[in-house]
């Protein structure tokens, strides 16, 4: 239309604050709902100043970490999905569909049942499980450049196996089926400061690595030969970005359980939002992360408002994300051949 949106900076300077504001509103809503009635403003003022009341305690010690977990997990999963989509050149990439979250869940379950419940060890096991699952998926799928859907089929096989194995472990360790279901669907019930303090260093490292390699990522979209002609060892950078995406996904699983479809949907959503600007890799990653965090924060707020917290947020995300996937898979027709 006008020159400003032609260059795109006008659009971006509106878009990013807008997305951030939506995410912040979802988080604030999440902060304000709960057993103690607090208004939005009250909740925010409790953040700044602790007046020692029960309401302030519940906002600062119970709701704030939960909100941070939700936003962080959403952002991490979105980044992870975006990285997978770039390095496999596959628009259907998603940490859940490629088996990474399943493997991470299995790793966490192995650690929980057989070794220790110490969270810091758990996350390492999660990352190891995620890596193993990613490796298995790659091995089964082989070269997927021409048939991206094969990656997903291989991922489904790996993730079905990992989920069944996780269920077996949890049953054998005498958890009830209800606990199992709650854990397998993913959510933020009872997540507190210990979980968040465990999560953020890994997520931060993953995010920083992915932002650091993003100039190179934009070359990885082309084939390896032209990447090589620019003096890049495509394989090496792909491994580095892949590691970052596994770390991001595994850290999320260790905190929230395997939440589906965020990693697939948000990168596409941010491409839609960015329009022609989506070719700017760094921008795309940042917007994806913001959208992912916002979506998960809103989902958690909604399940708390509607179901009074009895339903894990993962349910809502899976339903909405899956429906979006079905719609988009139709549109990615030439891909999903």
């Amino acid at each position: 239309m006008n020159t400003v949106s032609e260059t795109g900076y006008g659009r971006i300077s509106v878009l990013i604050p807008f997305i951030a504001a939506i995410g912040a509103l979802g988080s604030a809503l999440n902060l304000a709902t709960g057993a103690y009635d607090t208004s939005l403003l009250q909740a925010i003022s409790f953040l700044i100043q602790d007046d020692g009341s029960n309401a302030a305690f519940s906002v600062r010690e119970l709701r704030l970490p939960r909100v941070l977990c939700a936003f962080g997990v959403g952002a991490a999963l979105a980044l992870s999905g975006a990285l997978i989509q770039v390095i496999t050149r596959n628009p259907l990439g998603d940490p859940g569909l490629t088996g990474v979250t399943g493997g991470a869940a299995l790793g966490v379950a192995v650690c929980m049942t057989a070794i220790t419940v110490s969270p810091s060890v758990m996350i390492v096991f999660g990352i190891a499980g995620g890596l193993m699952a990613a490796f298995m998926t790659m091995l089964i799928a082989g070269n997927t450049r021409n048939r991206p859907i094969k990656l997903i089929l291989a991922g489904v096989a790996v993730s079905v196996f990992c989920i069944a194995a996780t269920s077996t472990l949890m049953i054998l360790s005498k958890s009830s089926l209800q606990t199992l279901y709650f854990w397998m669907i993913g959510g933020f019930t009872n997540r507190g400061w210990p979980e968040f303090s465990l999560f953020w260093p890994w997520a931060l490292v993953g995010a920083l690595v992915s932002l650091a390699v993003c100039p190179i990522l934009s070359y990885l979209k082309f084939d390896d030969a032209s990447a090589a002609s620019m003096g890049l060892n495509a394989g090496r950078w792909r491994v580095i970005a892949g590691l970052a995406s596994v770390v991001l996904a595994a850290a999320s699983v260790a905190v929230a359980g395997p939440i589906g479809f965020i990693g697939f949907v948000t990168p596409h959503l941010s491409s839609l939002l960015l329009g022609r600007q989506q070719s700017k890799m760094g921008l795309w990653l940042v917007v994806s992360a913001l959208v992912g965090g916002g979506v998960v924060a809103w989902s958690d707020a909604l399940v708390r408002l509607v179901f009074e917290g009895r339903v894990p947020a993962g349910i809502l995300i899976t339903i909405v994300g899956g429906c979006l996937f079905l719609l988009m898979a139709r549109r990615l027709g030439q891909v999903a051949r």
Binding site: I149, L153, V311, T318, G322, L326
Partner: peptide, 21 residues
């Protein structure tokens, strides 16, 4: 199969929502 897998996980989530609801 792709559609089936995705729809299956959506249905499973709906079932979960029913069960917990």
């Amino acid at each position: 199969i792709l559609m089936g897998v995705i729809l299956a996980s959506v249905l499973q989530a709906l079932v979960m929502a029913m069960v917990v609801g």
